[in-house]
Design a protein around this nucleic acid. Structure first.
Lengths: 339, 339
DNA sequence: CCGTTGATTGACAGCGCTGTCACGTTCGGC
DNA sequence: GCCGAACGTGACAGCGCTGTCAATCAACGG
């Protein structure tokens, strides 16, 4: 049978309660005692029983990562980062795929919280912008951290300056001589979509290019919406010479539609995306994109969440850096446009 | 405060222990009583406290999904399926990315098991074939279920007849007139690799084609290994007219290398993969591949695991069906080979 | 030197549930 | 109708930990 707190206490010659204090980093324990107990824990290979802990303390030492996201790579990256942070703080993490559009979405989350007595939630887009859910969490006084929420000036979590990144991307295209730069937007419910679109407009402005609504089509952050959007754009009388997809899946769809139409990338049309998922290197030609450190964002958001849970004081919204990844899908604007 | 088992008992006019019996589907409760208690549970919206349950019963109602897999899509599919099954049976599931090659791999899993008192494990390739880990599980008497293990004639879990599927794929290529059909294998540690390679040889045999070792190069189930393998194959004096990648990532690498070399697919070379991940539709041309119902496999494996845990008697190894997905990356063999 | 304060430690109950066992009831076989 | 076995139910302890509160002790000011 495994060592219990009582065994550690006996080994260290103290009471179980004092061992508990050390394990939970509570104050008012002498240093010498603390070390003695740590040594005993080591010696016995003691690990607290999570069930007993949470039963007695009415905390679960458990957070949940909620997602409703079509991009498995993104979710896996976030998940991995968050898991690292939770492990480091002796918390466990459960993951839950959810359908944020479902009628009973908020109830389901509520059930999750009360069933597992979750200490906090980690929210990914678009869930992090779900007003009704956030209301519930505020009411229930459940801490949460968001990854890339629409409103990144407040709250707790990790964010990336998507607006500036998009702006830079458009400027890059403009610097290659492109004058008709199209944008296929993301899913209207995602916060990222708003900022990427604004960044696109910022970029046009900086390059002294007029904004043309015909060159902006609505997408959904998906491959298929990239194909559909690109088909529409390619069918325009005055075709764009560059297409900026709101994410890499969308941009991959654009590449596919270009191949379908017999257009060469980047000779006939430049294409770029956002996120730098593996797909962006696995298509031909490899996509120019914005690298988003999703795993770091997962880790940081989880850290901030745990800090919030432990201290009771809200953590920060941390902004992480992006980088432009220039690959083969963008090149000089064509002189003349082939049909 | 939330309802406790005692409240339900009072509501139903019975003892807490009887409620517990009903909740745990134990025998020896009269039907009338059972219904009365179920009604009380409903009325109060009662949900058992998992911590108290597992503390008292020394079971955790918790299984873990272990993976060490480079394909996020695959893992997410399996994860989602497994989660469905666990939810249905009131178990929770934790997911753990691990490095199966690490020196302390087995110890880490051992620590996980004892830390969380896991009731069982769900293993994906290549972890499901890790001999030392399986030894540990047998010693510790921990049930597990495997997804696509190398040895699918015994054990518990879900499997797919990869050998027959590969064989069919090669026959499909042969029927298109291909005579020099190459294979880029998977990671040597994965069980799938063995069966896919055997199926490749079966297919050659059925089509009365000689096995040529020069046409088989070692891969790793990764995009990069597909690129590298294809470069080697394209450099052969007598180039293959079709390349069968051991999975879709590998095949996507082949497509990329073909584009790099200026070869057209399928005019100059046919390419096919295995798994039918989204990537296979997102590359140009869309990949001919074998559809593997990963989500179903995750669900089925989890179901079998839970059955094993609950009954004590081992569940089954369930074989799920595959389907060939013929898309645009395969076509008639070229008459003459362009350099 | 004494009372007061705050730091340090331990005794004890109890978190919400299930395992064990005891007790009463029903059933089948003769 | 009697007996043993199987069924149905409840009393009670205790899983391993932490919250509460009381006890002890050192430090300090007057």
């Amino acid at each position: 049978m495994r060592a219990r707190i009582e065994d550690v206490a006996r080994e260290a010659g103290v009471s179980p309660k004092t061992v508990s204090r050390v394990l939970n980093n509570e104050p008012n324990v002498r240093d010498e005692m603390r070390q003695r107990i740590v040594a005993a824990v080591q010696a016995l290979g003691y690990r607290p029983n999570p069930s007993a802990r949470s039963l007695a303390s009415n905390r679960a030492f458990l957070v949940a990562l909620l997602y409703d996201n079509p991009s498995p790579h993104y979710v896996m990256e976030v998940q991995q980062g968050a898991l690292e942070a939770c492990d480091a703080h002796q918390y466990s993490m459960m993951v839950r795929p959810l359908v944020s559009g479902a009628a009973d979405f908020v109830e389901r989350v509520d059930a999750l919280i009360s069933q597992f007595r979750l200490d906090g939630l980690l929210l990914t887009p678009p869930i992090c912008d779900h007003a009704a859910l956030l209301d519930l969490l505020r009411t229930r006084d459940i801490p949460w951290a968001s990854i890339s929420p629409k409103n990144y000036t407040e709250g707790v979590g990790a964010t990336l300056d998507e607006r500036s990144a998009s702006c830079e991307m458009v400027q890059h295209l403009a610097s290659l001589g492109h004058r008709r730069i199209a944008h296929i937007t993301g899913h209207p419910k995602h916060g990222g979509n708003v900022w990427r679109l604004r960044g696109y407009r910022d970029g046009l402005e900086q390059a002294h290019l007029a904004y043309d609504p015909a060159l902006v089509v609505e997408g959904q952050f998906s491959f298929d919406s990239g194909v559909a959007g690109a088909r529409r754009l390619f069918a325009l009388e005055h075709r764009p010479t560059a297409i900026f997809g709101a994410n890499d899946d969308t941009a991959a769809g654009v590449l596919w539609a270009a191949a379908e139409r017999g257009l060469q990338v980047p000779k006939d049309v430049s294409v770029c995306g956002f996120d730098d998922i593996p797909l962006s290197r696995q298509v031909w030609p490899a996509l120019t994109t914005v690298r988003q450190p999703s795993q770091d964002m997962g880790r940081i958001a989880a850290m901030q969440l745990l800090r919030t849970i432990k201290s009771g004081k809200p953590g920060q919204m941390v902004s992480v850096p992006y980088t432009l990844r220039l690959r083969q899908s963008t090149g000089p604007a064509p002189r003349r446009i082939r049909p």
